[in-house]
Every structure is written in structure tokens, then in C-alpha cells.
Write a protein that binds this DNA or RNA. Structure first.
Lengths: 245, 245
DNA sequence: TAGGCGAACTTGTACGAACAAGCCAGAGCC
DNA sequence: GGCTCTGGCTTGTTCGTACAAGTTCGCCTA
């Protein structure tokens, strides 16, 4: 673990633990540098990490202040339903309802950087939280990873983890589009809600470390089961609003 | 404008302009440093900015790669409906439907760091995009800013901008919770949809530069009108999934 | 031909220094 | 008392250096 990560982790623990309540000031960079026997640049890397997490805010000339005290977790939680569920203390379940190879559609070709008509694997999964169905996942995998996906246990808990362990595949980058839609008849039947009732939809495309697209997915959460959360500031902010499509 | 911001802006333009298509490699830090006559550290700050925006990805040892080419805009866009609409080329409209001083509820007291029962200003606004109603905004302002809000034009386009110009108030930090809900009867009437139809809800709390809460709001978008978008990576990611509440 | 090895390249981490720019509180003035 | 102004503190920006760690690709060998 890098030095700046250690410092960041230390400060994060102090904030989460209440040593620095919301609104309080953090020690100055100079003082932290002294305390950890590190250069000021290293301390700055540490607090930049906390700022990116939305835990602290900073303005030139003034001491850094604590904005929040909730631990926010990383990419894995957003990408992997199972890992998120586990970290929250829930029991995640899942079932593959269908799995089918077919030629990709034009829009899938664009999103997955494939040739038109190239073969993809379409999988429909129902995910459960403590036994309750909360998520319908319609995922399309690029052909080159299809066979590894097909070898997975249909009731496999964490697809992400299994793919890492079996073929060393790492999901590294993702783009996510979030909006609300009405439940279709299949959604309604699977989630146990009425047709037309509100669902939170997350469409995503995930790529490897090299930037190669692996899968795109249309995930629909039962209303009330999941909320997305983000902290931002004038300087840093990755979440953007878009016109509907 | 700082040097690293100039470099970042330059690279961003090149990416958005197609000089570096998705999947392409960026020049090495050393080469960029040479090209811009800057130290490597400065170049690193620049590309870190692009990485935070999700435009490029990076791994130790390998060249940085381009992940996306869409310009993502900042905090202002997420916070201010009018500024976002303008940047997208839409005409934003808005009307204050009601404005009322009342004691704050217990939950509002917590979110706005107020004493229980302290006075707040509750405002109901309907927002339009090119004339079409797309957003119902239920905002609660802390008492200390209430009179400035009441002085605003009821049809004022950008509350954020007006408050900055009239009292110098800057919205600096925000926390946002995003989920889906069914339209209530008031929502349905105002947005022209059926009761129970899906809405995208964004609940937010905004604070000043000093970390002092200014307002909290419950915004509901008509389904299909707006999508939230985020890019993330294994290393940087502020958007998290939460259990429903 | 397939596989392994290594050298060159590239990004990550850390240090130290200097100056710029903004904030804040206390001193001093009206 | 209230206002202004200044000096010290704190964060922001930039430079330069050095080494660590990971990737890539060509070369050599079996």
C-alpha cells in the first residue's frame, strides 16, 4: 500500500470514526506532513483522494473541512451486484433465466466495438437480495468472452469475481446511464410488481484495462430497493445530466 | 487559468475533436512535457483531470488510452437545471407555484444542520424544457437565505445564478440520491402524466464553500426527459449504490 | 514455431523547494 | 463600537529529481 494511501486511509478512519465531525477542520498539510513524516506533496495526494470521495472539501487559503462521514466504496460496488450486496451485509442471489448466442444488433456493435453481425451472448438474470427479487439484468457479452461466461454456474453469485478467477478478466472501466422506466410485462412478472410500475434503470458498458469492451447491460431495479448516491463539488464532478433518449 | 488546466483543455479538445479516437493511445507524459515545455508533474495533473472526467484511463507501465470522447460538464450542470439546459441548447423555463415559510421537520433539521423547529422556506417549482414541463422541484431553503430567495423573480430562470448575483451565494458542494418513484397526484397533474407512472427522482443537499447547508430538494423528472451519466474506473469512482429507504 | 528472457519504455510514488493566491484574525484607526 | 488593513497561515501551482513497478516488444533459444 502506498504511503499516501496509508495516510488517506488513516484520515478516512478518523473522519468515519467521528474524530473529525462534519463541518470540522482537518489539520493543515504542513501539520499532517510533520505527523506522518512525509513530504507535503504526499499529504496532498492523500487529501486529494478524500476530496475525490466527497469526504472533505477544500478552498485555497482556508483549512480543509469535513463534508461527510460515510465511507463510499469503489468501482466494484457499482459494477458488481454481489460485491455491493455483500459489503452492505445482504445475501445476494441470482439465477440465469436464459442464455443465448446470436448476432449482435447495430447498436450493440457500436457500444461493444464489434463488427456488425458478430456473435454475442445475451443473458437474462434475475438477482435477489435476501431472497427478494430486486433486479432484472439483461446483459450482452462480446463474443470473445462468451464461452467463459457460458461455463459459469447458472446460480453463480458474483459473475465479476468468477470471470476474474477463471480467465483473469478484469472489469476496469465503465460508463453508466441512469434513468427511470415503466416495468414491461416480463420485468413485472419477474420482479413481482405491476406492469407500468416505476423501475430504476442502469444501462452500462464495461471495458477491460486495455479499453476493450466486454459487456453492455440493461439492469432494472425494483423501485425502493436501490438508490444511487454521489457527492460532488464545483471542481470535481463526473456525474452529468443528459437529455432523455 | 493554470498551466495544467490549459494542457488538460488542449488534450480534451483533441480528444473531443477526434484527434485521439476511442481506444487510441495518448502521447507519453515525457512527450507531452516536452511539447508543452512543462514539468512531468504538471502534465500528470492535466491527465489526472481527464481521468477524473472519465475521458482517459491509465495503468502503470502502459500508455494512457482514450475511453470516451464526450465532454462532461461540471457541478454547475448537475446542480443548476437552467445552466444544464442552456449548455445543451434547450430553452429552460420555470414557475414558482408556491412559496411558504414554515418550521422545519426533524429530517430537514438533520440534513440542513438546523435546530429543530427553526424556520425554513419551502418552494414548489415547475421547470420546463422548450416549453414542455419535465421537472417538479420541491426545495427547502435554510432560514438564513430565505429572504433572498423570496426576493427572486417567480419566473426566474436560474435560481443559482440569481442568488450568486444578488447575495454572492455560491453553491459549492452537493450530495445527490437518485432513484425511481411513482408519480403522486400532484406530480402527475403538473407533469401531465398518469398517476403512478415512473419518475426519476434526484434528492440533493447543497452547501456553501464553508460546508454550510443551504438547501435540500426533491426533484422529479418525467421519465424519458433526463438521464444521468457517469464514467468510472477501478481507481476513481464517486457514484455508489445504496439500499433503498 | 512456440515460449521465455530481458531491455527500453511508461506510469506510479516520493522527496524537496519556491512562489502565488486566498483566507482570517488581530491590531490599529476613525 | 465598528471599520479597514495588514501580516501570518494555508492551500494552489510548478519545477526538478530519483527510484519503483508494470508493460511491451523484439530477440534468442529450445
Amino acid at each position: 500500500m502506498a504511503r499516501y494511501e496509508r495516510i488517506a486511509s488513516d484520515l478516512r478512519d478518523a473522519i468515519v470514526g467521528g474524530d473529525y465531525p462534519i463541518g470540522a477542520q482537518l489539520p493543515s498539510e504542513a501539520e499532517l506532513a510533520l505527523r506522518y513524516s512525509a513530504a507535503r506533496g504526499t499529504v496532498r495526494q492523500a487529501v486529494a483522494l478524500l476530496a475525490a470521495e466527497g469526504l472533505v472539501g477544500s478552498r485555497q487559503g482556508a483549512r480543509r473541512i469535513v463534508l461527510g462521514s460515510e465511507r463510499s466504496q469503489s468501482f466494484a460496488e457499482l459494477h458488481s451486484f454481489a460485491q455491493w450486496a455483500r459489503s452492505m451485509g445482504y445475501r445476494a442471489g441470482g439465477t440465469v433465466l436464459s442464455s443465448l448466442r446470436r448476432p449482435c444488433s447495430p447498436s450493440e456493435a457500436v457500444r461493444l466495438s464489434l463488427e456488425p453481425g458478430e456473435e454475442v451472448l445475451a443473458v437474462l438474470r434475475l438477482r435477489r437480495l435476501d431472497g427478494e427479487p430486486v433486479l432484472v439484468e439483461r446483459t450482452v457479452y462480446a463474443g470473445w468472452i462468451a464461452s467463459a461466461v457460458e461455463r459459469l454456474d447458472p446460480d453463480c453469485e458474483s459473475v465479476t469475481q468468477e470471470l476474474y478467477e477463471s480467465v483473469g478478466l478484469v472489469f476496469a472501466y465503465g460508463e453508466h446511464l441512469i434513468d427511470a422506466v415503466a416495468a414491461g410485462s416480463e420485468d413485472a412478472r419477474l420482479l413481482g410488481v405491476r406492469r407500468g410500475s416505476p423501475l430504476l434503470r442502469q444501462r452500462r458498458v464495461t471495458t477491460t484495462q486495455e479499453g476493450r469492451p466486454v459487456e453492455c447491460s440493461d439492469d432494472r431495479y425494483r423501485a425502493g430497493s436501490v438508490t444511487f448516491s454521489i457527492r460532488n463539488s464545483t471542481s470535481a464532478n463526473p456525474l452529468v445530466r443528459r437529455a432523455g433518449d
